[in-house]
Design a binder for these strands. Structure first.
Length: 638
RNA sequence: GGGCACGUGGUGUAACUUGGAUAGCACGGCAGCUUGCGGAGCUGUUGGUUGCGGGUUCAAAUCCCGCCGUGCCCGCCA
């Protein structure tokens, strides 16, 4: 863990502060009093894209124009004239009503490179979440079939969000909710009990095909439908034979899921099983703390059930007004909790409002060296939960339920909990031939290969083809391994570069994209950078602060300037739960390096060689840290 | 009946939360660059009335109102 102070001075933030202070002082010097809000001033700052507009800019003159009854052009001129140079800013100009500042590129380059070299693996990290614990729930796949391309989106988003929170100094729990009591498990279990329990391939794939088969047979035979419904009830009786068989089957499936997760570089800390939630009587504790908002109608359509009236909810969630129903069932008349009921109870546990008394056992080891723990019928007590923030990665169709669940906490006096449950609602992944339907199985078996495993296999095959043509790979034994890493980066980028709320139509052409805005492109720039360092026999001890004197306003400065913005990008991506902020930033960095590479020789850089080596070296550190955030391994040859 | 999300060149998208200068990037098309540190690259070019109509503003892809289109949700399913 890094010390708080080390994060307090990201280079781009220092310059922004200097800039704002200089502008503020200039306004005072020109007009006596500033009369402009500090927030307005901060919001007026932007980073221009055109070189002639400077390195940092403010539009504050437009706001002042009204107050001072003068034109923005005149005001900007006055501010630019009065503004005094700072540590990193050498001069101010005005243009079209904007105040533009130009940095002292030598000083700024030195400041950024120093910062990178000092912080290393910590470069780009932030302290905003320090002393706070957060739990990220993802992907909560049904243990009845393999991950499909939609599950994969969830898992990738959840993984990056957790990494981002960690980079912002949050203490993180990566949690996976396993619904082993649902209709999907009951359906698969029917096949497991009546058709076969002898898998002949990867368990989740095998079970998924069985599940699809049972679903098809159910369409024809009412009898099976009835038996599956009976199984569903038996599952709720958590000590029944059926429940034990279901748990055994589901555990095998979840283990197979983890193989997929590991292949994608995704790890977790804890799994919570729905059957253990039922077993722990978490629900009755949740009902106790929420009794003030619950009702148990003795007649009408909700007779015998425990409900929350929607008119209690709507003052806090206007968008739910005008719904067809007037109440939401929390506990059914048969005593079983609904999805919302269980989720409310579970979140009360997450935030430490009630104690579940869960027992945990080690579920399995992970390639990253850390075990996964799991709730279990008999296990030992551990310290999970009790968090300040919960991020739920769940697709957008569940926004209604998530909203009601969140508002319930406000109604029982825990507004802070409501505000800290974040529903990361992502758009669905469609297939080109239409909707992906878990039930009909239009995505697995019989040549329809849309599982997460299929995707990785296909991408690896493609990467291997390209890698085999590469003359740059010296270690031919590693070919397979390199192809796998490239494939993962390609898939991750393709998913993560799209804003979460957008729907995606899965296409092989996009998923196997190895050029342009892609993971392999980013990795390629990294490999080139590493090769330069190798050829130059680079070592950190060669570097000197004095090298910065050779900085120009070319791509060396542009690249370093972008590098200086990394912490801001990480904080933004984390605060907004938008991994695409990171992929965008990474591509900007990679693209600027490519241009630097084309225009500025490093090894033959003469007197600038030291500086350029320092830039290349710092870039590799920045890229490595970004790859870690995305859960991508690096290769030095490809 | 009510609500949520999305709509940006031929295609995939960024910027929208916090309004600001020529709407950024990639794919595709066209034309180039390698006896120079890696061509999975780079340069140039082509192509956009930001779904439509109003409003607010010095300034709108961005904020507000009304439409249109697409998807999703409002279950004692999960």
């Amino acid at each position: 863990m890094q010390d708080l102070k080390e994060f307090a001075d990201a280079p781009s933030l220092i310059v922004k502060r200097e800039f704002v202070e200089a502008i503020d002082a200039a306004i005072r010097a020109a007009y006596g009093d500033s009369e402009v809000e500090a927030d307005d001033l901060k919001l007026s700052v932007s980073i221009p894209t055109a070189a002639e507009q400077g390195d940092i800019s403010s539009s504050i003159a437009f706001k002042l124009a009204k107050i001072k009854k003068n034109s923005p052009t005149n005001i900007a001129k006055a501010i630019a004239q009065k503004a005094k140079a700072t540590e990193h800013i050498s001069r101010f100009e005005d243009a079209n009503g904007y105040v533009n500042a130009f940095m002292d590129e030598k000083k700024y380059v030195r400041a950024v490179l120093r910062d990178v070299l000092k912080r290393r693996k910590g470069y780009g990290q932030s302290s905003v979440g320090r002393h706070k614990k957060a739990i990220v729930e993802s992907p909560s796949a049904n243990p009845a079939h393999p991950w499909h391309v939609g599950t994969l989106r969830n898992a990738l988003l959840g993984n990056v969000i957790a990494n981002l929170l960690e980079a912002c100094s949050y203490e993180i729990e990566r949690e996976d909710y396993i619904d082993d009591l649902g209709l999907q498990v009951a359906t698969a279990l029917w096949g497991w009990l009546h058709i076969s329990n002898k898998p002949d391939k990867k368990f989740d794939q095998w079970l998924g095909e069985l599940y699809v088969r049972v679903n098809k047979e159910m369409q024809q035979k009412e009898q099976i439908k009835g038996e599956v419904n009976d199984l569903l009830k038996k599952l709720e009786e958590v000590n029944s034979q059926e429940s034990k068989a279901g748990r055994e089957m589901a555990e095998k499936c979840v283990m197979a899921h983890q193989e997929t997760a590991f292949a994608y570089g995704i790890y977790r800390d804890v799994m919570v099983w729905e059957s253990d939630i039922v077993r722990s009587h978490l629900l009755s504790k949740a009902l106790d703390i929420s009794s003030s908002i619950l009702e148990k109608p003795s007649d009408g359509k909700y007779a015998g059930a425990i409900v929350v009236k929607l008119d209690k909810i709507t003052p806090y969630a206007k968008e739910l007004e005008g719904s067809r129903e007037d109440a939401k069932v929390i506990v059914r008349s048969n005593g079983a909790a609904t999805y919302i009921g269980k989720d409310f109870a579970f979140h009360a546990w997450k935030f430490g409002l009630i104690d579940a008394g869960f027992g945990y056992k080690k579920f399995m080891d992970q390639p990253n060296g850390k075990p996964i723990f799991s709730t279990a019928p008999s296990g030992t007590s551990m310290k999970f939960g009790n968090v300040k923030r919960a991020i739920n990665v769940i697709d957008a169709s569940q926004a209604y339920e998530q909203q009601i669940m969140r508002v319930m906490f406000t109604l029982i006096g825990h507004k802070d909990v409501t505000e800290n449950i974040v529903h990361l609602a992502y758009g669905r992944v469609n297939l080109e031939e239409g909707k992906l339907s878990a039930r009909s199985g239009n995505w697995l078996g019989e040549g329809r290969n849309y599982t997460a495993d299929d995707l990785l296999e296909e991408a690896t095959k493609r990467a291997l083809e390209i890698a085999q043509k590469s003359e740059k790979i010296t270690n031919k034994q590693n070919m397979e391994q390199i192809a796998r890493v490239i494939a993962v980066s390609a898939i991750k980028f393709e998913y993560l570069r799209i804003a979460p709320e957008k729907e995606i139509t899965f296409s092989w052409d996009n998923a196997l994209n190895f050029e342009g805005n892609s993971g392999p492109y980013a990795m390629y720039t990294y490999a080139r950078a590493k090769k330069i360092l190798g050829r130059a026999n680079f070592s950190v001890s060669q570097l000197s602060d004095a090298d910065a004197a050779h900085a120009t306003r070319g791509y060396d400065f542009a690249l370093v300037k972008k590098m200086g913005e990394m912490q801001e990008a990480v904080e933004k991506a984390c605060a907004e739960s938008r991994p695409n902020v990171i992929t965008d930033y990474l591509l900007d960095l990679a693209s600027l390096f490519s241009r630097f590479y084309e225009t500025m020789p490093v090894i033959k850089g003469k007197e600038a060689k030291g500086l350029r080596l320092a830039i290349v070296y710092s870039l590799t550190i920045a890229l490595e840290n970004l790859f870690v955030l995305l859960g991508i391994a690096t290769v030095s040859e490809m």
